[in-house]
Computed example of a mutant assay.
Amino acid sequence: MCRWLAYSGEPLQPSTVILDAQHSLVKQSLNSPLGAETVNGDGFGFGWYPRESVAGSRPALFHSTEPAWNDENLRELTQAIESPLFFSHVRAAGGPPIQQTNCHPFRYENWMFMHNGFLGDFAKMKRDLTFAVDPSLYPHIHGTTDSEVIFHLALTLGLQDDPIGGITRAVQMVESVGREHGIRFPMQGTIALADGATIWAFRYSTQGMSRSLFHSVDIDTLREMYPDIERLKIFGRRARVVVSEPLNDLPGAFVEVPESTVAILDESGYRHQPFLAEAA
């Protein structure tokens, strides 16, 4: 359906990974070997926190319905700024129209959210799920995607106080409503969530056959493995990425996130914990 990337670490020019990597996100928009669709050209989005970001900082967003490979503004912007935490997403529209309000990432206050996947037979569930969104949050839904509904449903269900719990309860509601409508596999996808300091990356589907998700190993390990690669000197020691698919072909550079898992990335590095594993 889509491909996405999330970075956290020392402030970095986003173009370093969005444009310049061997298998950068822009290159994946043209050719995505691990994606459900090879081409992801139905718009893109880029969201970033300020250079001195802390939890509570408000991110900025740039959305376009242009293919990522054809937008000079994306190149200008990602080369002009530095950010310690940013998201980027290239879209393959699975039904909702191609418009800026349907481009990821989505934002609410200091939170950013993006999704790769879909809700099965969303049209059958849309009314029930949308009406479950808190009335104070409903006006913030600007587009028509299932992804934006999931985000605001999670906000309704306590995401700001308990990020993993909020996403858990939203997915459980999706699956409950889906069963009521006779939908066999209501939930599919990977989700990225950030508050300005921490990234949560979820991999889950009702069917247990989720979209691909990886994260990089730490830079010190990479430099030990590949001491002659000059490009690795660009990155600080805290630099990490979570991606739909690896950004290079270096063996051992990326670790696959298991099914029914949330990978949590903060100042201490990565840790994994089960996510709805019993349901899966």
Rank of each mutant, 00 (worst) to 15 (best):
E109W: 11
E109F: 08
E109Q: 15
M112Q: 13
M112L: 15
M112P: 00
H115R: 09
H115F: 11
H115Y: 12
G117I: 02
L119T: 12
D121I: 02
D121H: 15
F122C: 05
A123D: 15
K124F: 02
K126N: 13
R127D: 13
D128M: 06
L129F: 07
F131Y: 13
F131V: 00
F131S: 10
P135D: 13
P135L: 05
Y138W: 11
Y138P: 01
H140T: 04
H140L: 04
S147T: 14
I150F: 10
H152P: 00
H152L: 11
H152F: 15
L155R: 07
L157P: 01
D161L: 12
D161T: 14
P163E: 05
G165K: 09
I167M: 12
I167A: 04
A170C: 08
E175W: 08
E175V: 05
S176H: 10
H181I: 07
H181Q: 14
F185W: 14
F185A: 12
P186T: 13
P186R: 12
I191M: 08
I191Y: 06
G196E: 12
A197S: 15
W200E: 01
A201Y: 01
F202A: 02
Y204C: 03
S205E: 07
S210F: 03
H215S: 01
S216K: 03
